[in-house]
Simulated assay, not measured.
Amino acid sequence: MKFKVIEGGRGQVARVEVCPEAGCGPSRDDVRREAARRLDASGYHTSRVREFATGAPMPGALRYLSLQLDFVAEALSRLDPIPLDFRSDAYWPAFS
């Protein structure tokens, strides 16, 4: 199993527009995009395609990571307001 460093926004940190007005922070779509970016960076989709093509099961750790990312994205998107630092690794599970 290979490990890789997950970087923000495909190597560049994606920025959220911050404005002082209420309701102008990150959206639920921003949280969902962050979850999708982390799932892509983990190699989940490559492993899933390999599973369909060869029949060899994907690692259980990747399946579990997918469930964890979905849970965190759902929990963060329900917060009002969504924290401005929602991309912080403190909120998201680590792939090990």
Rank of each mutant, 00 (worst) to 15 (best):
L69F: 01
E17Y: 11
L67E: 03
F71T: 04
R37M: 04
A90D: 05
M1E: 08
Y91F: 13
R38N: 09
S42P: 11
S27F: 00
V13I: 13
Q12T: 15
V16L: 12
R15G: 02
R63A: 07
R33F: 05
L76G: 01
V31S: 13
M58N: 02
A56S: 11
D40C: 05
R32G: 10
A75S: 07
A94Y: 01
H45D: 13
S47A: 14
L65E: 00
R28F: 05
K4A: 14
G43H: 11
P81M: 09
G43F: 05
A22F: 07
R15N: 04
D29M: 08
V13T: 15
R37N: 10
A75V: 03
I6N: 11
V18C: 04
R50K: 10
D29R: 14
L69T: 00
F86R: 02
D89S: 03
A14W: 09
R78F: 03
A36P: 03
S77A: 15
R87W: 04
V16D: 13
S27P: 08
P57Q: 04
P20A: 14
G23A: 14
P81N: 07
F95H: 09
G9K: 11
E7A: 12
L67P: 00
S27M: 01
A61Q: 03
R32D: 10
V31R: 08
P59S: 06
E7R: 15
L39W: 05
G9P: 08
S47M: 10
E51P: 02
P83D: 06
L69N: 01
Y44P: 14
R33Y: 08
G25W: 09
W92M: 04
K4S: 14
A94I: 06
T54P: 10
E51M: 11
E17M: 08
P20S: 14
L69C: 03
F71L: 05
P93D: 03
S88L: 06
A56F: 07
A53K: 12
P93K: 04
D85G: 04
A14M: 09
A94F: 00
P26Y: 01
R15W: 05
S77Y: 04
P81Y: 06
G23T: 13
T46D: 13
V18K: 05
R28C: 12
V31E: 06
G9Y: 15
V31Q: 08
P20M: 04
D70G: 15
A94C: 06
M58D: 01
A22H: 02
R63K: 12
G60W: 00
S47H: 06
Y91H: 09
R87V: 07
A53H: 12
L79C: 12
V49H: 10
S96Q: 08
E7V: 10
